[in-house]
């Protein structure tokens, strides 16, 4: 198949970017979206052009490094990571727009690469458990109700890709933050720091300049891991709880 790409090119954070059009011929429909970009980049390199910068690592949908906005939708038309999207999802002759995540706390570094350090700082503000980790304990040493374990596990699958922010009309990172809060706050090991965690992570979320959530739900609709919407209500409950119980 032959396609036309319109790609956001921006040499560095200081310079203005713009959309540049490239034709890509003989694309196999079995290629992943990133492989298609690889093919284009090889050609650009041979032609002495600067290859298109994009983030990626595992290419199997588990690391959360990849992610671009394709035709206005984070990770493109399927609810999966960009590396797991294949060219068969597009029609022959399609014109495909490719842009970086857009949010004030995610500044563009180059082309399609953005700085997601804000997520690391949200994790540093409470997305951990302050106990020494020895070897893994026996699985049945601390019983956890099945429904809590399931919900915590669902929340824990968040790969911190940032698609939720890129999709949110408010530029909010509430789904990411809620996934991390829910994961730890549902489990026994998370209880001692339950309220300082949620308050600290939400404060850092706000400090980074992310917007407030208005429960529109675009985040869960594009999330490659299907992080459930209810994690946000879970976060809200704990945050309101910390107003009362978080006085230490």
């Amino acid at each position: 198949m032959n396609i036309t790409l319109r790609v956001w090119r921006q040499p560095n954070a200081e310079t203005e970017g713009r959309m540049v059009t490239y034709g890509v011929e003989n694309v196999s429909e079995h290629m992943s979206f990133l492989e298609m970009l690889d093919v284009l980049n090889e050609r650009l390199t041979l032609e002495g052009d600067d290859p298109i910068a994009f983030d990626h690592d595992c290419r199997e949908g588990i690391c959360g490094q990849c992610g671009v906005v394709i035709d206005g939708q984070p990770h493109g038309p399927l609810q999966t990571t960009t590396c797991q999207l294949h060219m068969r999802s597009f029609a022959d002759g399609a014109v495909i727009d490719v842009e970086p995540w857009r949010a004030e706390p995610f500044p563009v570094i180059k082309d399609l690469v953005v700085d997601r350090g804000a997520f690391d700082r949200i994790i540093q503000a409470g997305g951990y458990i302050s106990v020494p980790t020895g070897s893994a304990p026996d699985a049945h040493a601390t019983p956890v109700p099945k429904t809590d374990a399931d919900m915590a596990f669902d929340a824990a699958t968040c790969i911190a890709c940032g698609a939720c922010v890129a999709a949110c009309p408010n530029g909010s990172a509430m789904l990411f933050t809620a996934a991390k809060v829910t994961h730890l706050n549902l489990l026994p090991q998370g209880q001692p720091e339950r309220y300082s965690r949620v308050a600290g992570m939400v404060a850092q979320h706000d400090e980074e300049g992310f917007g407030g959530c208005t429960n529109i739900g675009e985040c869960t609709a594009v999330c490659p891991k299907g992080i459930p919407f209810e994690t946000i209500s879970f976060l809200n409950r704990d945050l309101l709880g910390s107003l009362i119980k978080g006085n230490r």
Binding site: Y195, V198, D206, L240, G246
Partner: peptide
């Protein structure tokens, strides 16, 4: 230096509530 309760009270989530 803020307590969790104070951080929570200043948050966007509290404003939403």
């Amino acid at each position: 230096s803020l307590t969790p309760a104070k951080k929570a009270a200043r948050s966007t989530v509290a404003l939403k509530a």
